[in-house]
Design a protein around this nucleic acid. Structure first.
Length: 687
DNA sequence: GCTCGAGTCTCATTACGTGC
DNA sequence: GCACGTAATGAGACTCGAGC
């Protein structure tokens, strides 16, 4: 069986349970009274089935006889039956322990057993990014944080029910209707899997506000905040660990509830975690690993706010020693003020209060940089508001369809490598660049394919010294060469699949871009191999229909052409090359700068530069650039192109989007500054 | 709750152009 | 001539909504 070194000598819970089962069986054999057999556990251990079918008990393979002399009874914890709902191990010693030693003793025992069982039952593909010990620590943290969430549920339920039940007893009481609404909201909130998450469109938060608030005016103000305001995940985890290592009640402070089960579970989890981590690590490294595990789980359980101490009030100069549903602390960095435009139509008083409540929840969620977000709902002109997000958008997901089990190992390796990079190194500029460019191209699809350019491209590339394969292209000519590729007619390829779902395209594009950008990716390593045979058919089949191919790498400013056959056979290091890190870093800076700017050098100019006039106009018409005054003035249909601009607008001395669009293609090729990714200098136009 | 059809995906295959 | 990458096509699997 699975055993673990522990600093303290304590009986292994599975042997306690094994003996308890045998003792109950013995009782049954003496008395014939079936009531001594705990039904669920005995059924899962086959004992009950054996008695019913044959009259004799049969024991499942959880018990075996092993050891050197084949005489030692062995129990396999990985086969011990679990409760299908709670996933906690079934036990038979509960009543005996409670009577003999009290309920707290049993809870400690059961928690320890749960931890052993959870580690033994852990799925092999869970937390692949962690080491074996790291995964065990996360299991322990998961149990402790789960107990914290259970306590929060209990606390909120107990305190709110204490308030509303007396009111609900009397239909004529003041606030009866409000109490009914609170009861309904409370029920809904208690059933939510992640009760301390914002939820979609802050839905979970709104339900919680409705349960907590005593009236509509309070609801409009949102959750009452504690005087701590916002704390980081680090703070919360430090508190968990401090409480988990303390034996005295003095350490027990909110958000831990002294009437809940979290404290004993936390202590057991931290003790176990230390024992396991210190087998292979120094104490300091073990503490850091435990803290990392807790932070991972707090984020995984989506804890964004929690009930905390009530602030000092009246004569009481100290914060309360118990958490309260009337005092909430947010997790996350200091909030940035979100500007929500007031576009509300005239509303009744009640509608106004409900609107305020919803607005508050959404605003608070928006300010939390670690809260969930969805790139498919973000306009290009607003992307700058999401640049400092610490988590990937919900729309970034590797679905089961995307990586079917029969995908080749190389493709799986690339996707898993990229996922790890995006999840754990989100703030790295390479990940950021790949994500931004994937976001942009996902907005452009399905026009991501190109029409056959014929020989016109050859001439333009020849002017830049790119004739045969493997041409030497000096850094100053790379920008113009990229711009030559950008002049291709980008179009939707009819009848070709794979470009219709924005979230899927966004995910795959980001993975492909990152794999090409990073020299240590499986993709770049594969290409470095001598006598390598390309990226394989599976990679090509997956990405080729989506045009996630080298030509789009060039278009997105990640690569540059070095051979004239780049459109027909874009072979790495033969017809195209990836820009070096310094060039890519500069490109990243420029992209960020343009996304943040307002006005003519802002996001519209970026889209114009990468995708050309036709696409930029289309995106402007669909409202992607709310800050561009002329974008809202123009009413261009989605199918319109630069040629649709009227003659009268061209004669105006004021430049607008259409002028930029009109100039676009010629500028890309002619402008000397283009090589440095510069904004076009304004031309003087005559009336 | 079941069936059906539309839509979309992955994957396999073939044809073609280019470079070695 | 072979290897490689892309374009195009079709088969099979899956999801989702409408209708019963």
């Amino acid at each position: 069986m699975t055993t673990t070194t522990s600093s303290r000598r304590q009986p292994n819970p599975i042997y306690v349970e094994g003996i308890s089962v045998l003792e109950r069986l013995l009782n049954y054999l003496y008395t014939g009274a079936a009531k001594v057999l705990p039904c669920r556990l005995m059924r899962h251990l086959w004992i009950l089935r054996g008695i019913l079918d044959t009259g004799y008990p049969v024991i499942s393979p959880v018990l075996s006889i092993g050891g050197k002399r084949k005489l030692t009874p062995m129990l396999d914890i990985s086969k011990w039956p679990l409760d299908p709902v709670t996933h906690r191990p079934l036990t038979s010693s509960k009543r005996a322990q409670e009577i003999s030693y009290g309920r707290p003793h049993y809870l400690g025992f059961e928690t320890l057993f749960h931890m052993y069982a959870a580690i033994a039952h852990m799925k092999s593909d869970r937390w692949r990014d962690a080491t074996a010990v790291g995964r065990e620590l996360r299991v322990l943290a998961d149990i402790a944080v789960g107990a914290f969430l259970d306590d929060v549920r209990d606390l909120v339920r107990t305190q709110i029910r204490a308030e509303i039940l007396p009111i609900l007893d009397n239909k004529d009481a003041d606030g009866y209707s409000s109490a009914k609404t609170r009861r309904l909201s409370l029920r809904k909130w208690l059933e939510i899997e992640h009760p301390l998450d914002w939820g979609e469109d802050a839905g979970t938060h709104i339900i919680l506000v409705q349960a907590v608030a005593r009236d509509a005016i309070q609801a409009a103000r949102g959750l009452p905040s504690s005087n701590r305001g916002q704390l980081s995940v680090d703070h919360l985890v430090d508190h968990f660990l401090h409480v988990g290592k303390s034996t005295g009640l003095a350490a027990l402070r909110p958000p831990i509830w002294n009437k809940g089960q979290c404290w004993p579970v936390l202590r057991a989890a931290v003790t176990q975690a230390q024992a396991r981590a210190q087998v292979t690590m120094a104490p300091a490294a073990a503490d850091k690993a435990i803290k990392d595990a807790f932070i991972t789980i707090v984020e995984e359980r989506r804890i964004h706010f929690y009930p905390d101490s009530l602030p000092p009030s009246g004569d009481n100069l100290r914060r309360s020693l118990q958490p309260s549903f009337q005092s909430w602390t947010l997790i996350g960095p200091q909030a940035r003020l979100a500007v929500v435009p007031g576009r509300a139509a005239p509303m009744t008083q009640e509608e106004n209060l409900q609107f305020e409540m919803s607005k508050n929840s959404l605003e608070q969620m928006h300010n939390d940089r670690s809260s969930v977000w969805n790139s498919t709902l973000v306009l290009i002109g607003d992307y700058h508001e999401h640049l400092d997000r610490t988590v990937l958008p919900q729309s970034w997901k590797i679905t089961s369809d995307m990586l079917k089990t029969d995908s080749d190992q190389f493709t799986v390796d690339c996707y898993e490598w990229a996922k790890y990079q995006f999840v754990h190194k989100r703030s790295d500029w390479k990940c950021d660049l790949a994500l931004i460019l994937a976001f942009l191209i996902s907005k452009v699809r399905p026009a991501v394919a190109w029409k056959n350019p014929g020989k016109t491209l050859d001439t333009q590339l020849s002017k830049l010294g790119i004739s045969g394969p493997r041409s030497t292209v000096p850094p100053a000519s790379r920008g113009p060469a990229i711009n030559v590729i950008r002049t291709l007619n980008w179009t939707e390829r009819e009848g070709v699949n794979g470009v219709h779902q924005e979230d899927m395209y966004f995910t795959q594009a980001s993975i492909v871009f990152l794999c090409w950008i990073c020299e240590d990716s499986p993709l770049r390593k594969c290409l470095k191999k001598p006598n390598g045979s390309g990226l394989g058919a599976a990679w090509g089949n997956k990405h080729q229909p989506k045009s996630l191919t080298p030509l789009n790498l060039i278009r997105m400013g990640l690569a540059y052409p070095i051979g004239k056959a780049v459109t027909a056979r874009p072979v790495f290091n033969t017809n195209f090359k990836i820009l070096d890190d310094i060039e890519l870093k500069n490109w990243h800076k420029e992209v960020i700068s343009m996304l943040k700017q307002r006005g003519p050098k802002g996001p519209f100019a970026l889209v114009l530069k990468i995708f050309g006039g036709e696409v930029a106009t289309r995106l402007a018409a669909s409202g992607h650039f709310p800050d561009q005054p002329s974008a809202s003035q123009r009413s261009v249909s989605s199918s319109s192109s630069s040629t649709a601009v009227s003659a009268s607008s061209r004669t105006s001395s004021k430049r607008n989007l259409s002028d930029l669009v009109e100039d676009d293609n010629s500028w890309l090729v002619d402008n000397d500054e283009a090589g440095e990714f510069a904004i076009p200098s304004r031309r003087i136009r005559t009336a």
